[in-house]
């Protein structure tokens, strides 16, 4: 464990907690894409298949349980909660996210480290995570309303993978085993996807104006 990975995990944890707190306290999911949340739940499900079979550390297990639990409860809140679900704007959340999954699955079948079910599922989760934010970014462009918490959520989510890239660089130079190039490529693509959001987020923060995404 190094400081970059810890910072990445804490930022990722903060992002899901910000979202969960927002939905739980104000009982609204306005501006939140259910499709992105469903994709994240699938990412954690397919990545943590070895949760009970492959013990790495207490920290690792607890964090996996938190990410699984939080992503599924966010999906439950938006789909099932009698108050929250009324604020879900499904006409704006139109990205056909299941279309996104097939290319990731096919790519994972052809490009992976080892052709075993667990490994293909893990690689699938890496590819899927890289593009899972797309429905949310599309929805933001459409609704143009970015309340502070949603803006912070997306910022933290983008920052976590940026910290992971620093972690991979650090591990490359300091450890004997390595992080697979698939993870590198997908992680860089994922962070780049947040690129324009980061740009507008910093602009709004610097000029102290409300966050606006161009149409």
């Amino acid at each position: 464990m190094n400081i970059f990975r810890l910072a990445g995990d804490m930022t990722h944890l903060a992002s899901v907690l910000v979202l969960l707190l927002k939905i739980h306290t104000i009982k609204s999911c306005a501006g939140i894409s259910l499709k992105t949340q469903e994709l994240f739940a699938i990412v954690f499900l397919t990545r943590y298949l070895d949760l009970f079979t492959n013990f790495i550390s207490i920290y690792n297990t607890i964090m996996k349980l938190i990410f699984l639990g939080s992503s599924f409860s966010i999906v439950w809140y938006i789909r099932r909660h009698r108050v929250v679900r009324r604020s879900y704007d499904k006409d704006q959340d139109t990205f056909r996210h299941f279309f996104l999954m097939w290319p990731c699955l096919i790519l994972a079948i052809f490009i992976n480290e080892k052709f075993t079910l667990k490994e293909v599922m893990w690689t699938f989760s890496i590819y899927l995570e890289a593009i899972a934010i797309l429905p949310q970014l599309v929805m933001l462009q459409r609704t143009r309303n970015i309340d502070n918490l949603t803006g912070q959520y997306i910022f933290l989510l983008g920052a976590y993978r940026a910290f992971y890239i620093l972690n991979w660089i650090y591990r490359y130079f300091t450890e004997e085993h390595y992080v697979h190039w698939i993870t590198w490529v997908a992680g860089v693509i994922q962070t780049l996807l947040y690129g324009d959001f980061f740009y507008y987020y910093f602009q709004s923060w610097k000029n102290n104006v409300k966050l606006e995404l161009p149409a």
Binding site: N54, K64, R171, E176, H177
Partner: peptide, 10 residues
């Protein structure tokens, strides 16, 4: 030699 892939990350 870089033998093992790191699989201890979240």
């Amino acid at each position: 030699a870089r033998d093992k892939v790191a699989k201890d990350e979240l």
